[in-house]
Amino acid sequence: MKDDSKKKGAGCNSCNSSENCFADMALKKKGSRRGALAALFGGAATAAASSAIAAASTEDEKELKRIKRDEIFQKYYRTMTEEERAKTIARFERKSKVQYGVDAHIDGTHARPNTLFGYAFNISKCEGSRKCVDACVTENNQDRTSGMQYIKLFEMEDGIGSVHGGDTEYSHEVPVEGKYYLGTQCFHCENPPCTKACPTGATWSEPDGIVVVDYNWCIGCRYCEAACPYFARRFNWKEPEVPSDEINPYQHYLGNRMRSKGVMEKCTFCIQRTRQGKQPACAEACPTGARVFGNLLDPDSEIRWILENKKVFRLKEDLGTEPKFWYFTD
């Protein structure tokens, strides 16, 4: 570390480290103590930037800091009043603008009455094209650098029921004779072990059956990840990175809004889409129609027809987690 700072400072004769050099330059430019202080507290990330750019971005940085400070003191989303929720959402929309330059629309739609979401996956039909995985990553603003994916698509030998023998990293033409494809994601259990394990109540089951995470209430202990028998939860080991032009601006507070380092995230059945009557991104992207999504309380829905007329099974049914995600065959 010491060697690094020496290298950085080597280009400037008047000062020792890059931070001091930066403060010096800011002083000359602005001629005020306040500007220099602001530039100093701008942190090491901006230290290498030129003073002109730094002066313009300090305002943004200050605002971002204010927003982040407010974030620390914000309340639990479930106990907020509607006004508090609206204010919080407005703050995150502003954060998106300042931090990423994206005009995000963050939705706060609650569960719709008489709705309980369920999912069915046809293992006879899935061809393993992995289009669902791709659509999910794009829709939900997942970190592009760590390769985080909510969906795992296993290529499995015919007759083998356990995903432990499955291959998720195949790169040949699909489908292969003698193999079948089985996708897993968060199953949105009716009796979810993850929500019970959470010490802060940051994850809970919504009235329409979606298990969600309040990213600002999550302390990153990963108990939920350990509790989930389906390996459905993903942890942000680092600050998620999504190129600004690839950020999906249609977001939901409990869904695909930008996460930060050290919080848990997972599939939300595309809450930002499904609460508006659309299909989840994976189901829409599926080229074969192997993915069926619908309302379990609607007797005319496709999913109810499947449950009544097809042979269905769920994974690890003996655990009593009651996942709302069924597999079926033709």
Binding site: E127, R130, D134, H172, E173
Partner: peptide
Amino acid sequence: TTLPVAQPT
């Protein structure tokens, strides 16, 4: 048959 979408790194 088709080629699957590339796996992210």
